[in-house]
Design a protein around this nucleic acid. Structure first.
Length: 617
RNA sequence: GGGCGUGUGGCCUAGCGGAUCAAGGCGAGAGGUUCCUAACCUCUAGAGCGCGGGUUCGAAUCCCGUCACGCCCGCCA
């Protein structure tokens, strides 16, 4: 099937069948794709209309000053170009705006009804076809998804070392990473999600040594009955030993750890299997935890892979030939022009370093994908810069690489650490969130107006959707570069700007549709005349544009901001406009179609954020 | 010490060169349910965007300086 895609593709790098790779769980054979909505063609029309007007007067079209007007202006797009032209044309901005408006033949462009000057601004208004088209496009359950592009992207995220339970400090990575991947998928890219497993470093050697060295009987009870909780006890015990052992014992232990590291480097099969047992066991547990979010992966790429297949050695050979390569202090290093710190890529003992292997890893990514996005913590920024520069020196096109940087989540009392066992585990956060959500659901059962009966399963389902959704939404809705201090009550606030607020809108849509027996939705936007209806429809229309912009910048929090806007608009509509109880049939039918479009929009926006959309709550 | 990032009402967050109210939420105060789920809605008080300069017709948004906080500056990952 992937072969068919390739037949249409131009310059597609991949030569394997993309649909048959292991681990695909989301849309196994088809990507969600929609027609892309009306907003984007409207914007193109505006650009073309304004551009040609400027061209006709031989004015620069570099920056058209297109922007979205403030809320109280009901144009869809505006331009502030008159400010910039004022000097050149020797007229005041409002005068320039008026003249330009006269020259633009708005009606000649698709979806544009007219352009009006308002002071110094040019406001572009959509025609009826824009609204009709939006109402129709919104009936598609994939609304908001853009047409497929022939571009593959690998999104690497989380990649936490398999040392123990996932704690909240790193929880931003899977949550933001999964959302970025979803977002790119909606934007039409062919996305793979990868978890890079650091199974070759000292941490894993220590872990393997500790696992073999200590007896379970001397360890505390695990905090939770799952693999990574059981295993991390050995890791902590081992680190504790290394910190406190007497010199001889320490030396013996270090020798064993060193043997494991050397064994991995030499490609020794037996050593590899010992380490792999530990890595795979811990990883299975972490996978289960991440699955609760859910964050899933197409592939877990192991670091040792690039040692075993010779690609790390191959990179080293090429690195040594680079102009900036120097042999200093018994180690091979690379000097950069723009980065102060050298990159050591080969130790005195001839072994490779993490970054050396990551270079091989990224060359592999660049061979197999058109683009690569990596989600990483701010502490890896320098390393990411060095990686990028080095790849560039090796002759790669690093424009194909992007990274999304986030700050760690800290506790009021400081950092979280797996090794020291400090911090809040993601499992505990999710459990607490679900418990609190269940409490909310049960509290509300009493004064529930709706006469549907929520059985135990429904309560549990809602508690999970709301609880997990609230955690994800709280994290994904903020700019990742901002630091977060974790506080239970703030993370688990179910009111207002939170997942439940948006989820509730979805449930309301479903409620209306459930009541709308016998009403057939009709695509008649002309019946939707009130401000509340027009504003809701206009907000729905923007969705594909929001997806495109957020995807371009890898900023899923913009989708979260959008969900609040559409939720506000929907609630305004809900208050003002009865659907099932509307007076005449045409109104009922048209409003029902609007509700369906709103539901699809909200559901898909939440889907991008990785938040479930409950049908009732 | 150097580099990078962050700093918006009591608290949290959006905006990151343009529209004489800087947008929401929490919290505070006042209201709203014979009508599709009140995890909702309406109204009131509250900031001039860390601080000081500068660029610009116009700055929360750009530049410089400064302060605070975070991260980084390992032959660790």
């Amino acid at each position: 099937m992937g072969v068919i895609v390739l037949a249409f593709g131009t310059g597609v790098v991949n030569t394997f069948d993309r649909s048959e790779r292991p681990g695909r769980t989301r849309y196994p054979y088809t990507r969600r794709s929609g027609n892309g909505g009306m907003f984007r063609p409207f914007r193109e029309s505006v650009e073309a209309a304004l551009g040609s007007a400027l061209e006709a007067r031989e004015l620069s079209t570099d920056d058209l000053g297109i922007e979205e007007p403030p809320e109280d202006v009901d144009a869809v797009l505006a331009s502030s170009i008159a400010f910039r032209l004022a000097g050149e044309l020797g007229a005041a901005p409002p005068e320039v705006a008026a003249r330009l408006a006269d020259e633009i033949d708005a009606a000649g462009y698709e979806y544009v009804d007219r352009v009006e000057p308002t002071g110094p601004y040019l406001n572009f208004f959509p025609d009826e076809a824009y609204f009709e088209g939006t109402l129709e496009a919104g009936q598609d359950s994939a609304y908001g998804a853009l047409p497929p592009k022939d571009t593959s992207i690998v999104v690497e995220h989380t990649s936490a070392n398999p040392t123990g339970p996932v704690h909240v400090g790193r929880a931003r990575n899977p949550i933001v990473g999964d959302a970025v991947a979803n977002l790119l998928e909606y934007a039409g890219y062919d996305v793979d999600r990868h978890y890079y497993v650091n199974d070759a470093g000292r941490q894993m050697a220590v872990f393997t040594w500790a696992y073999e060295r200590f007896e379970e009987s001397e360890l505390p009870e695990p905090a939770r009955d799952r693999a990574e909780y059981r295993m991390v006890r050995y890791y902590r015990r081992g680190n504790d030993f290394l910190e406190n052992a007497d010199p001889e014992a320490l030396e013996a232990a270090e020798a064993e750890i060193e043997t494991i590291l050397q064994g991995l480097e030499a490609g020794d099969e037996e050593t590899y299997e010992r380490v792999t047992e530990v890595v795979d066991t811990v990883l299975a547990g972490m996978k289960a935890c991440l699955g609760r979010l859910p964050a899933t992966f197409d592939e877990f790429i192991k670091e040792t892979r690039f040692m075993r297949d010779g690609s790390t050695d191959d990179v080293v050979v090429r690195l040594k030939e680079l102009h900036g390569a120097v042999y200093e202090n018994d180690a091979w290093q690379l000097e950069f022009e723009d980065i102060e710190k050298n990159l050591v890529f080969l130790r005195a003992d001839g072994t490779s370093l993490y970054t050396t292997r990551d270079l091989a890893h990224h060359e592999w990514k660049l061979e197999n994908y058109d683009r690569a996005v990596t989600v990483l913590g701010e502490d890896h920024k320098l390393q990411a810069r060095q990686l990028r520069s080095t790849l560039s020196l090796l002759g790669h096109d690093t424009d194909r690489l992007d990274s999304v940087i986030y700050s760690y989540v800290n506790l009021p009392e400081g950092k979280m650490s797996t090794r020291r066992g400090t911090g809040v585990q993601l499992d505990d956060l999710l459990d607490e969130a679900i418990d609190r959500a269940r409490g909310e659901v049960e509290d509300r059962l009493g004064d529930r107006l709706r006469s549907d009966d929520l059985d135990e399963n429904a309560v549990e389902r809602i508690a999970r959707q709301v609880g997990v959704g609230a955690v994800r939404y709280d994290i994904v809705s903020k700019q990742p570069t901002k630091a977060i201090t974790f506080e239970w009550d703030r993370a688990l606030d179910f009111e207002a700007q939170s997942a439940p607020y948006v989820q509730y809108v979805h449930a309301r849509c479903c409620g209306i549709e459930g009541e709308a027996d016998g009403i057939e939705p009709t695509l008649d936007a002309s019946v939707l005349e009130t401000d509340a209806e027009r504003e809701l429809l206009a907000t729905i229309a923007r969705f594909p544009g929001v997806v495109e912009g957020a995807a371009d910048e890898h900023e899923p929090h913009r989708i979260a901001t959008y969900t609040r806007e559409i939720a506000d608009r929907f609630n305004g509509f809900y208050r003002e406009c009865p659907v099932v109880g509307a007076d005449d049939e045409r109104t009922r039918s048209a409003r029902l179609a609007l509700v369906i479009a709103a539901r699809h929009t909200v559901a898909n926006a939440l889907d991008i954020l990785g938040v479930e959309a409950p049908e009732s709550m």
